[in-house]
């Protein structure tokens, strides 16, 4: 038997030197984000739960941030990378404002985001990014990115733990996939739904995701960026408020642009 027994570990001098504990610099903090563009507004939303595995770290951590008067960013994946990516982007936007006396357009922020993500190609930010806001023409815009910077402008996008639950629903309700207009009716055009419909879809998406995905829940933060001059009655009108929903207008960050950003918060189930 001894002939076939493995030699003791200490007999192999290379073993001890080779051995190291592998440090994994990444984690996954759950949650989900979502953005939908309208004709003259964009809604960008994220839940507020932060988790690791089966543990809820906190019931309130932000995933969505206002960048400029017409652009909001949401990140999902590894929270530390997401937070630090947003920090760096905010710094670049401040430098831009000092150099050019104006805020960066969402189109330019999108390209900047790609450059910054791809700059970390070989040690990526583990962050799925969605930008939402108003473009230079005054229309709602959504840009979505993968962690190394591939990006695309879309009418809507879901990302994160509940992406697979929410995106098919959005395909159906925003892109009207597998639906045909009634005979004689107007053809469907994505990105033209009224704000009240979009708000309803976002809230339904997150309550549905909360029901079936354990990494989603606790609270919902929903940013609405509106084109300048647009009426706000469909958001702040009292009959539009659902139970426990709070609406607050965020003040202007820069000068000139009169786009308005609102923060809508409401609770989600905590189980």
């Amino acid at each position: 038997m001894a002939l076939f027994a493995p030699p003791p570990m200490y007999a192999d001098p290379t073993m001890a030197a080779d051995k190291q504990h592998a440090f994994n610099p990444y984690s996954e903090n759950g949650g989900s984000i979502l953005a939908i563009a309208g004709a003259d507004f964009t809604v960008i939303a994220g839940d507020t739960r932060q988790s690791e595995g089966y543990s809820i770290q906190t019931r309130y951590a932000r995933k969505v941030w206002q960048l400029t008067d017409r652009c909001v960013i949401a990140t999902n994946g590894f929270a530390a990378d997401g937070n630090n990516f947003v920090k760096r982007i905010k710094q670049r936007l401040e430098w831009y404002e000092h150099a050019h006396q104006k805020q960066m357009s969402i189109k330019a922020i999108a390209r900047l985001t790609q450059t910054m993500l791809y700059g970390n190609r070989f040690f990526p930010y583990f962050a799925y990014v969605i930008l939402g806001g108003i473009d230079e023409d005054g229309t709602g815009a959504v840009y979505s990115f993968d962690p190394i910077g591939s990006y695309e402008r879309e009418a809507c996008r879901a990302a994160g733990a509940a992406q697979s639950l929410i995106q098919p629903f959005l395909d159906n309700q925003i892109y009207f996939r597998n639906q045909t207009p009634a005979p004689g009716a107007e053809p469907f055009v994505p990105g033209r739904l009224p704000l009240s419909t979009v708000l309803g879809l976002v809230i339904d998406s997150f309550t549905s995701a909360t029901e079936r995905e354990i990494a989603v829940g606790d609270g919902l933060e929903l940013y609405v960026v509106m084109k300048k001059g647009r009426t706000t009655d469909d958001l702040v009108g009292s009959d539009n408020l659902i139970k426990n929903m709070q609406v607050q207008e965020l003040g202007a960050l820069g000068e000139g642009g009169s786009e308005r950003t609102f923060l809508v918060s409401l609770p989600l189930k905590r189980d």
Partner: peptide, 10 residues
């Protein structure tokens, strides 16, 4: 998972 999301919504 996609069916859960769609069904939960529709």
């Amino acid at each position: 998972d996609k069916l859960y999301g769609a069904a939960e919504g529709l």
